[in-house]
Simulated assay, not measured.
Amino acid sequence: MWLNIDGVNILIDPGPGSLVRIFERGFDTRDIDVIVVSHRHLDHCADLNSVVESASESKKNPKDMLVCPSDVVEGEDPILLKYLRKALREYKYIGENVEIPYKNIKILGTVKHIHQGAETYGIEFHSKNKKVIYVPCGRFYEGMLEGYSENADLMVFNTTFPVKTEGYYHLSAQDVEVMLHRYKPKKAVITHFSIAMLKADPEKIAARLSRKTGLPVIAAYDGMRIDF
């Protein structure tokens, strides 16, 4: 996801193929100000190193900041390669109730998610006039109904399954419905679909969520652009 909020360009979760998609869509990695990784699973960060090397022009022009959980950079099995550490000026580790200022915006760590094998937190992006919420992967629990902001301009949900599915640490459309009733964003997007979700038709799921909540819900598709 490429987020532009008050002129700041933020790349969120550069998963497989991210570098190619950026150029296909007419963007330039050198315009990225901040890279945000919600968690270390490869579907969210497989292209992190490729993007960092491209964006920094092989470390000659380091990017301003990487925001992520600590296990993306540190520990025995980090995602970011050591030789690219100097391609970023700052590393800011996200966590519950962590606020990271950058230029005219704030990046906030909110709710801790239950996600197997990866430190994961909800993330919000606040400017003077806009508020965007990114809800990454994780198994739904009651604690997720506290900690996010209400009435955001845009709320993006990683919605993997159409119905609750035992044994997986991912949200379902049923979980998202509960969260929509609680947080009431002005606009919502569902994304991160499993095969089961694709077979159920994400657009139909989004329409159903809109009917049940009275809120505009959109199913993501490749190359989608959205104003908020």
Results as ranks from 00 to 15, higher is better:
residue 1 M to A: 14
residue 1 M to T: 12
residue 7 G to C: 02
residue 9 N to A: 10
residue 10 I to T: 04
residue 11 L to R: 01
residue 12 I to N: 07
residue 13 D to F: 14
residue 17 G to Q: 03
residue 23 F to K: 15
residue 24 E to C: 10
residue 30 R to I: 08
residue 31 D to K: 14
residue 31 D to R: 13
residue 31 D to M: 09
residue 32 I to E: 02
residue 34 V to R: 00
residue 35 I to G: 01
residue 36 V to L: 11
residue 36 V to P: 05
residue 38 S to T: 14
residue 38 S to D: 08
residue 38 S to I: 03
residue 39 H to K: 10
residue 40 R to K: 15
residue 43 D to H: 12
residue 44 H to A: 07
residue 45 C to T: 06
residue 45 C to H: 10
residue 47 D to L: 01
residue 49 N to Y: 05
residue 51 V to W: 01
residue 59 K to I: 14
residue 61 N to K: 15
residue 62 P to W: 11
residue 63 K to S: 11
residue 67 V to M: 01
residue 70 S to V: 14
residue 72 V to Q: 09
residue 75 G to C: 05
residue 78 P to L: 04
residue 78 P to E: 03
residue 79 I to T: 09
residue 80 L to G: 06
residue 83 Y to K: 11
residue 84 L to A: 05
residue 88 L to N: 09
residue 90 E to V: 12
residue 90 E to D: 12
residue 91 Y to P: 09
residue 91 Y to W: 09
residue 95 G to W: 00
residue 97 N to E: 15
residue 107 I to S: 01
residue 109 G to Q: 02
residue 114 I to H: 10
residue 114 I to D: 15
residue 117 G to S: 07
residue 122 G to P: 06
residue 128 K to T: 13
residue 128 K to L: 12
residue 136 P to H: 07
residue 137 C to L: 13
residue 139 R to Q: 08
residue 143 G to M: 08
residue 143 G to H: 04
residue 147 G to V: 11
residue 148 Y to W: 10
residue 149 S to D: 15
residue 151 N to G: 09
residue 152 A to V: 03
residue 154 L to Y: 05
residue 158 N to L: 13
residue 159 T to P: 01
residue 160 T to N: 08
residue 161 F to A: 09
residue 164 K to W: 05
residue 165 T to N: 07
residue 166 E to V: 01
residue 166 E to M: 02
residue 169 Y to R: 05
residue 172 S to R: 03
residue 172 S to D: 05
residue 173 A to Y: 09
residue 174 Q to F: 00
residue 175 D to M: 04
residue 178 V to R: 15
residue 178 V to S: 11
residue 178 V to F: 02
residue 179 M to D: 03
residue 180 L to M: 04
residue 180 L to E: 04
residue 183 Y to V: 01
residue 185 P to H: 03
residue 187 K to F: 01
residue 188 A to I: 04
residue 188 A to H: 02
residue 189 V to H: 04
residue 190 I to K: 03
residue 194 S to P: 02
residue 195 I to P: 12
residue 196 A to C: 05
residue 201 D to G: 03
residue 201 D to L: 09
residue 202 P to I: 04
residue 203 E to K: 11
residue 213 T to V: 02
residue 214 G to L: 04
residue 217 V to E: 02
residue 218 I to E: 06
residue 219 A to P: 08
residue 219 A to C: 05
residue 223 G to Y: 00
residue 223 G to S: 01
residue 226 I to Q: 07
residue 227 D to Q: 14
